[in-house]
Design a protein around this nucleic acid. Sequence first.
RNA 1: GCUCGAGUGGUGGAAUUGGUAGACACGUUGGACUUAAAAUCCAAUGGACAUUAGUCCGUAUGGGUUCAAGUCCCAUCUCGAGUACCA
Length: 1002
Amino acid sequence: MQETQMMQYNFNEIEKKWQAYWAKNQTFKAENNSDKEKFYVLDMFPYPSGAGLHVGHPLGYIASDIYARYKRHKGFNVLHPQGYDSFGLPAEQYAIQTGQHPAITTAENIKTYRRQLDQIGFSFDWSREVRTSDPKYYKWTQWIFIELFNSWYNKETDKAEDIETLIAAFSSDGNAKVNAVCDEDIEPFSAAEWHAFSSKEQQEVLLKYRLTYLADTEVNWCPALGTVLANDEIVNGVSERGGHPVIRKKMTQWSMRISAYAQRLLDGLNTIDWPQPLKDSQTNWIGRSEGASVTFKVLDNLDPERSRSDQIGVSTTLNHQFEIEVFTTRPDTIFGASFMTLAPEHELVAEITTPEQKAEVDAYVEATAKRSERDRMADVKTISGAFTGAYAEHPFTKKPIPIWIGDYVLAGYGTGAVMSVPCGDQRDWDFAKHFNIDIPNIFEGVDISEAAFADKEKTVISNSDFLNGLPYKKAVKTAIYELEKLGQGKGKINYRLRDAVFSRQRYWGEPFPVYYVDGMPQMLEDKFLPLKLPEVDKYLPTETGEPPLGNATIWAWDTKQLSVVSCSLIDNETVFPLELNTMPGWAGSSQYFNRYMDPHNDEAIFSKEAIDYWQDVDLYIGGSEHATGHLLYSRFWQKFMFDKGLVPKDEFAKKLINQGMITGTSAVVYFVIARFAKDKPFYIAVSKSSIAVLEETIKKWRNKTPVNSKPFRYSILNRRYANVDYINSSDELDIERFLGDSMNKDFEGAVFLGENDTEIIDNNDAYKVVREVEKMSKSKYNVVNPDDIVAEYGADSLRLYEMFLGPLEQSKPWNTAGITGVHGFLKKLWKLYTPIIDGSLSGAEVKPSAENLKTLHKTIKKVEEDIENFSFNTSVSTFMICVNELTTQKCTSRAILEPLAILVSPYAPHIAEELWEKLGHTESISTAAFPTFEPKYLVESAKEYPISFNGKMKFTMELSLDLSKDEIEAAVMAHEKTQQQLAGRTPKKVIVVPGKIVNIVG
RNA sequence: GCUCGAGUGGUGGAAUUGGUAGACACGUUGGACUUAAAAUCCAAUGGACAUUAGUCCGUAUGGGUUCAAGUCCCAUCUCGAGUACCA
């Protein structure tokens, strides 16, 4: 009795023991130099929120941990680090409300996270932990910012270069020969002019070329909240929080010239093994479109005294003052352009509008300005616009075409102006129909009376002079050629990708290592980094509307003392103001994967040795919500670092996997509020099976209830979430615990109807809830905390179950009840080893049987394939099959059980370590060599052939695999069941696929 | 609207290149053990019909290709994710 007690699977004890062992022995510490081949497995590091982890969070970590452990067994030197993305809004929000410093909140949250992560048994190398809010870490975020500032993008070499090479070019040749990605409004200057510029003028020019630069950017400013809001924080033009008005306001902010990398970011996608949907959304986000830019000359205003139609076609003079540049993907349709449309915000609107149209245009511009961008986008159906009264000259026909404004043209895309081709674009078509504008047809054999025709492939151009008869592609080429000849256009590739605004008006983020001299930004020297966040007494913006750092009293840079000093000393001679904005959330996460390679280096972001050894991430696992944020910015920074020669790879992660979301399974109690006459109302809760037949159910209940002659009424169905902890595996509610919740006080005296529609008294029946799959959230009481699961079933069960739930990349519902399956498996596994461990098996080693070996090698093969394919759910079932078989076989052979422990170890490391030790090993199982699959154990001599008739399987028969096709056919035809099936008919055909199937047709 | 993905028992999900649909679990039902419960073990479990051997129907729907289709092709429906007046 005592002995069996000892031999029980005590997961609590085992898991604590091995977690302590791993920590003490630094089992998973990775070395930066090793003869072993490297393998880098990375998780997206978490933001440590106050709520802690729920069971959905560890899913990706478990998968990556399995892979990391597997690779160690395979002999790799594995880097598997973890850290925290610890700057962010929630901590700041909490600070605003409570005054608690975000650093303190963050540290507390990290502690909780670490405890929760530790008890799941991850093989993280915690010695490499990074925190983005740690000055030792953000020193390097600031450093990269400075590097970007000191760089420009040379289109000739197609890479980022040091700003010195640009200055050298300016000094010798001015900017005429420089082919750079830069601001649009660059004025040409010569070398002499460059030298004549003042220092400030030179700085201003350079700022237009730098990869991070200051620009006036429109933001959503909420005066009442004193803060800038993101687009999704605005609803119907007012702030989501508080409902305050929001205005568009220009602010000087840092931007990142990510647009310089648009093409390379697109091309790079072909070189990496990332999920297609994610690549698609990045492609979409970058939004490359090929076409042409075309310049339209604006005509002098026509004579307002004469009617418009009179003047169309008459010779007009060109007003050389104004030109409108448009971008089009369909230069082939240029002869179909019957009008132009400008965005209401277009800068030329005010210039070209004729006096008599001014009132209408102004009213329209004002009306659109009031609508938020979001509203405009949402309201696609309504067509609106106004005629400016001005005309442009068609580049080829030289005819005047009217210029309209309309809010379907967006100021932020392309040039904010379009040539409108109503026959070829549905939006133009709708606009033209609405305002009764001419819709010329330039497509051969196409009816455009009902809708525009946009099928490029079927396009043949007509009514278009030199383009007549040409198909789409040729027409595009020809049109561009002719436009270039005229000097009124050229082929152009346009990207949707905009430069990224890099300033945030927040406290809890990286400070910019920047001070201002005469309004021009100056970088701190590297040796003064990190520039640490100053203390402030409140975390809100200042009364004058400056960012929270404006509250800091010690926030000025003294260029003599070379230190941060009190703001009161600012004299703009030697002491200057520091930047008040902070960096956005994605700053810290854009290079953390490289910093892990050498996280304690104070001399460099990482050593050359470290980056040369680790190179890049081999496997990156995380959620798909970062598709166009973190994962795009990180690729951008990596390419920049690559250009600077700092990293050897221009893509940071070879393979990426998006784990799916684990949703909650909420439990819903349906009830009606009932009452007898004027008695006190009471609740009747209706069990799952009876909801659909509510009326009948209540009637039944009434009939069984002691007669109450008073009139009876009840309400429609109501619902109430029950805490999922109160539900057993059969969806039955623990009514007592449910009633114990303070929020369910109103259920006092409620009648619970069981499955048989009888009132539940003393557990005579069960109340079944309705289960609904939804996102885990506090308000739905469906959040499952991994702590509880670990306490009740152990970390190994949790790990196995999360994997067993389904394919890694798929979203799937959590249901705690099912965990008994994998928990039972671990118990069976434990039991399998008992005879060997407790010594009840005395004497010599037991030789494995052929059957044992077959089971083992089948398992090795399948598990290895599964891990390589990230099909972790199927390997868990493979383990179950294996243990079930070995149990039936009563296997006690060490030669089987030792390799099995290694196979299981990546998935359930604690039990594997314990069994390994009990088998007599003194070293951790974590680096034991993964067993080798040997096909010889799986060789079969016979096969159970399915015999089908017209494709339908009727019976099976065992046949030797040595048989030839003819022999198989003969054997099958001779079988009595075959004759039965044929019932005298002669088969038309017999298909024999040796080793697979026999199909008899006829 | 567009792009991508997915529809398989009561539930989560298996099913290599087209070759025995429903592995492995959960749940359910019955049984063993127990004073009882828990735990454990055994058996059954896609549906319909049939006392029995068995027959028919079954992978969202409708067509098609094939000796053979969950798997390939076409059309339709539903759900999910992303994105959006992108010229």
